[in-house]
Write a protein that binds this DNA or RNA. Structure first.
Length: 403
DNA sequence: TCTACGGGTGCCAGCGTACC
DNA sequence: GGTACGCTGGCACCCGTAGA
């Protein structure tokens, strides 16, 4: 369908600025949908759609659908299906309580590629390299970090590869030398927050102490969470643990942990973690494996559950750690506390205590040993634990022995 | 190097629960 | 019973990491 035959409102989608000037918007959206479908994970499709300025929320999508004529609707529904938004849209319509606008629009949202094209009157199909350069300048001027601009450029470049293969464009305007865009500067090394053994002990003690609003079972769960984090787990690994993951192997209690990329590793329990888990299980009203939860309805029995019996969420864990840091009087840490700090604690403590780096790498599930080394190098380590102290002491002893 | 995914963070509204 | 705290579930974003 030619754009001229569309009702005016169909060219006025998504905040009224998305498609003006686009020669064949239906063809473009169809190809974008096909491109997104080439990715297996919905989260990836959503990330790319968001980066282009397309709707990824129910609110945005409903706005599109409300404006579209029947020709657009089937294209939009195909797009919504691609992002798994259709079911959420129906739930949203039947539940007005969920009909809320986004709480905070993105800082760079008006500068996402398609929105920027619309605001400048540019047809994305005819855009050239100079337009992409201008867009990148606009992003830089708006304060977008190099990593953000790199991500957005990569999204646009990959999209145009597909559009070129589909015959919609003749060349890829985003196939640019990133050095000329200032995108190859190395990231400054960030200091990694790492806890000391004393601070971890303070967290464990704070978890066990009575807190306002926290039941004894809450306290035992909090202690189990901190104890499990001392094994070097990622927060998502901890939340995803199921009861069958807790097992005995080679005479020791261990966890079967599913890490990034679905990689499974065995993590042996320390006495601390085992006792914390045992105390927590003892406090549950029913045997853990028979606890009725939403997750067990799908055949899984989460290791850690909330008061209502559902699986602990990573945001709960993050909030819990900050509360514990405050309760432990670690006020300076509380603002920066996050689950990875305990993972970094594991890496630095293990290596400072003489563990071999490859063993530590295996324990925490790093794919490459240089990742483990990087964590160790960038950690804010406890000065009292540095080997430099031992070297200095040795030299001092020799100096004292020398007349 | 790029892709795919995860982590970290902020905000909101409402309900549940332990404690005083 | 009132209150403070904890939990749930949703929205959004930027940025980092690890596998290929």
């Amino acid at each position: 369908m030619d754009q001229r035959t569309l009702p005016a409102r169909t060219t006025d989608l998504a905040e009224g600025t998305l498609w003006p000037g686009v020669g064949d918007p239906i063809r473009l959206l169809t190809e974008i949908t096909a491109w997104l479908r080439s990715y297996g994970a919905t989260s990836t499709r959503r990330t790319y759609a968001e980066g282009l300025g397309l709707p990824t929320s129910v609110t945005d999508l409903r706005d599109w659908l409300s404006r579209a004529d029947h020709t657009w609707v089937h294209v939009l529904r195909a797009y919504a299906d691609t992002l798994d938004l259709t079911a959420a849209l129906h739930a949203d319509i039947t539940d007005p309580e969920r009909n809320r606008p986004p709480t905070r629009p993105g800082r760079f949202r008006p500068l996402h590629w398609l929105r920027w094209c619309a605001s400048t009157g540019l047809d994305p199909v005819t855009a050239g390299s100079i337009d992409v350069l201008t867009w990148q300048d606009a992003l830089r001027a708006a304060g977008a970090a190099p990593a953000t601009r790199t991500r957005m450029l990569a999204t646009v470049r990959t999209l145009y590869q597909h559009l070129a293969a589909a015959g919609l464009v003749t060349a890829n305007p985003a196939d640019l030398d990133r050095r000329r865009l200032g995108l190859r500067d190395p990231q400054p090394a960030k200091t990694i927050l790492t806890l000391t053994p004393a601070e971890v002990a303070a967290l464990l003690n704070a978890a066990a102490r009575p807190r306002p609003g926290a039941s004894p079972r809450d306290r035992l769960r909090a202690r189990a969470v901190v104890a499990l984090f001392t094994l070097g787990l990622r927060v998502s690994e901890l939340c995803d643990l199921d009861h069958p993951d807790l097992h005995t192997t080679r005479g020791r209690r261990a966890l079967r942990v599913t890490g990034k990329g679905g990689k499974i590793r065995t993590v042996y329990l320390t006495d601390l973690a085992e006792s914390a888990l045992t105390d927590y299980f003892d406090a549950l009203p029913t045997a853990p494996t028979t606890t009725v939860t939403r997750a067990t309805a799908s055949g899984r029995a989460p290791l850690l559950i909330t008061r209502t019996g559902t699986r602990c969420d990573r945001r709960d864990i993050w909030s819990l750690l900050r509360r514990l840091a405050t309760a432990a009087d670690l006020y300076e840490l509380a603002g920066a506390m996050h689950p990875h700090a305990l993972r970094h604690f594991y890496v630095t403590t293990a290596m400072e205590q003489g563990a071999h780096i490859t063993d530590v790498q295996s324990d925490v599930g790093h794919a490459r040993v240089d990742t483990t080394q990087r964590v160790y190098n960038h950690a804010t380590r406890d000065p009292s634990r540095t080997a430099a102290t031992h070297v200095g002491d040795t030299i001092t002893r020799h100096l004292e022995q020398t007349p």
